[in-house]
Simulated assay, not measured.
Amino acid sequence: MATTQITEASIREALIERLKASHVEVQDQSGGCGQAFTAVIVSTEFAGKPSLRRHRLVNAALKDEIAQIHAWSARCLTPEEWEREKLSSEPRLGS
């Protein structure tokens, strides 16, 4: 497997393409070296699925990327959950 630099943008693009995500926030937690990321992912693909299934979908979609980084954390929300959260508080990753 060829190793490529994983970036916030490359993860965001992959999630939008592979999970039809309507909103994605990715933050590099490693100080720019691309080894630890956290994300908020909003997708209709998560509807009706418990948290574990949502995370498994994300991990499968980012299998190659996750294999190249040290740490990965994601919050997986449906569009309805995201709208409720935006009304009740500020997004956790900032915009």
Rank of each mutant, 00 (worst) to 15 (best):
Q5A: 14
L19I: 08
S51K: 14
E13M: 11
I11R: 00
C76F: 04
R56V: 06
H70M: 04
S30K: 14
A47E: 11
K49Q: 13
S73R: 10
L52T: 13
F46R: 05
A60S: 13
A39I: 15
N59Q: 10
E17F: 07
T3A: 15
H23M: 03
T7G: 09
E83L: 15
C76K: 08
R18Q: 11
A67T: 05
H55C: 11
V58T: 09
S30V: 03
P91H: 02
S43W: 08
Q68T: 02
W82H: 11
A74V: 15
I11E: 01
A60D: 11
T4V: 14
L93M: 10
E80M: 08
E8G: 02
C33F: 07
I69V: 15
E8K: 05
L15G: 00
L19K: 00
I16T: 13
E85D: 14
E25D: 15
H23S: 07
T44P: 14
P50G: 01
Q68K: 10
R54H: 08
S43D: 13
A39Y: 03
E80L: 09
A2H: 07
I69F: 01
N59P: 02
T78A: 07
K20C: 10
L57F: 06
E13C: 08
L62G: 01
E85S: 12
A14H: 01
Q35E: 15
A39Q: 01
T4M: 09
Q29T: 15
H23W: 03
A9Q: 15
A39D: 05
S10H: 05
P50R: 13
G94N: 14
A74F: 00
F37A: 03
D28E: 02
S43H: 07
E17Y: 02
S10V: 03
A21L: 04
G48N: 11
E45P: 04
I41Q: 00
W72G: 01
S89K: 15
A39K: 02
Q27L: 08
T7N: 04
G48P: 03
D64T: 13
V58W: 02
G48L: 13
I16M: 04
G94A: 01
Q5M: 09
K20I: 01
K86T: 04
P79F: 06
T4I: 14
S73N: 15
H23A: 09
K86M: 10
E90K: 08
W82K: 12
S89W: 09
V24H: 00
Q5L: 08
T38F: 09
L62D: 04
L77S: 05
